[in-house]
Computed example of a mutant assay.
Amino acid sequence: MNCCQGLLCNKPSNIVGCIHCRAQTPWDICKSDYLSIVPCNSQTSACGVVQFNSTSPNFFRDCLPVDTCNATASFSFSTSTSFNITWSPSCCSTDLCNAGNVSVVPFDAPNGLMCCTGQDMECRQITSCAGSENYCHTTVFNGVRTMGCTSRSVCDNPSLLDFYISSTSQIDCCQGFLCNKQNYTVVCNQCDASTWDACSSAIISCGFQSTSCGVAVAQFYNGDVLSRQTATRYCAAPETCNVMLSLNLGTGVQIWTSQCCDTDYCNAENSKGV
């Protein structure tokens, strides 16, 4: 029989003991009401402190895999709803060393990068990346393929997703404007206004039925007098492309003219109708 006196004095020397608590409340609660001590193993051999922000903040101290340590990260994706996740861990390697606190840098202003979001390879929306999210990604979560923005630390270490989101994942990252868009979809400018000067364009990803980008002008005449006009940039189906239509409404005539192109953002020019 071997006896010793002191906190964890009979713990094997190759195992570290960490403070353990998890809560959706601030660190002060995690220090007391939910506190315990756990032995780590060879897979989770470091003591860590993590703040994890998703739909709500999560605070925890626990044993962490070494390769997830000290890697602040941000990750966003979309399925039926949109998710933005940030986490900031801090690790140490001695018994009960994870008593301190960390904080996550909040979601920052857009950084200029735009990526596709959606699932099953369909670019359903264009999202503006923020803060350290300087890559676009396509990620498979348990067989579901999603798209969005992420920071480089996630691309370099995909195991961060497996640990923090508790999901088996496979991630492909790329760097560049809408680089995770599939080649069979087109991205167009979109606006609708009375003149081209007032037509402030947004960027929209087109569906499978709209294979071109279009510009169109609708003009309304009362007799020979132009009473109203509408300038439009849009995702165009083939049957709406490069046509001129005239419709007698009884009280006046509407003339609709369109022009189309088939590359990303190619409908930035104005139609000659206005």
Rank of each mutant, 00 (worst) to 15 (best):
Q190E: 13
V187E: 07
C9P: 00
Y221H: 11
S167H: 00
I165N: 13
T94A: 07
Q24L: 11
N248T: 04
N10Q: 14
G112S: 05
G48A: 14
Y234M: 05
A71H: 06
E269K: 12
Y184I: 03
N189V: 00
P57D: 11
R233G: 02
F107G: 00
S227G: 07
T79H: 10
F163H: 14
C92E: 04
Y135C: 00
G207Y: 05
I15W: 12
G48C: 14
C9R: 03
S128N: 14
G207I: 07
S258V: 04
S42F: 09
L8H: 11
N70Q: 12
G17F: 08
L35R: 15
P12S: 15
C9A: 07
P65I: 06
S200C: 01
N242P: 04
S103G: 11
I203K: 14
I203S: 12
D192L: 09
M114R: 15
T138R: 10
C4V: 03
S153M: 02
R124S: 13
N10L: 15
I15R: 14
D192A: 04
F60D: 01
T44C: 11
I165K: 08
A216T: 09
S88L: 00
N157H: 04
G252A: 06
N2V: 06
D262E: 12
V215E: 01
N84Y: 12
N14D: 10
N134F: 03
R22C: 02
V274W: 07
N248A: 07
T25A: 10
L247C: 07
L160R: 00
P106A: 09
S258R: 05
C97I: 06
R233N: 10
S227T: 13
S159D: 09
M121E: 09
L113R: 09
L113I: 08
N134I: 06
V50K: 00
M1E: 03
Y221M: 08
A193L: 06
T44D: 08
P39V: 00
S166G: 13
C149N: 06
F77T: 08
G223D: 04
L160I: 14
T230V: 15
Q119H: 10
V274G: 13
S194H: 11
N267R: 05
P26L: 07
S227F: 04
T240P: 04
E122M: 12
P110W: 01
A193P: 08
S200I: 13
T257V: 11
S78L: 13
C30L: 04
V144K: 06
D224F: 13
P12Q: 13
S45Y: 00
S80Q: 12
V154M: 01
S88E: 08
T79G: 09
G176H: 09
G143K: 09
F83G: 00
W196I: 04
C47W: 01
K272T: 13
F83V: 14
S246T: 15
T146H: 05
S54V: 02
F60K: 05
V217W: 01
N222I: 08
G118H: 07
C191E: 01
S36F: 12
T211S: 15
S42T: 14
T240H: 10
Q43S: 12
G223R: 12
C213S: 02
C92K: 02
C97N: 08
S128F: 05
C123G: 02
T257C: 03
S76I: 10
D67G: 02
N84P: 00
T72A: 14
Y234S: 11
C123S: 03
L113M: 09
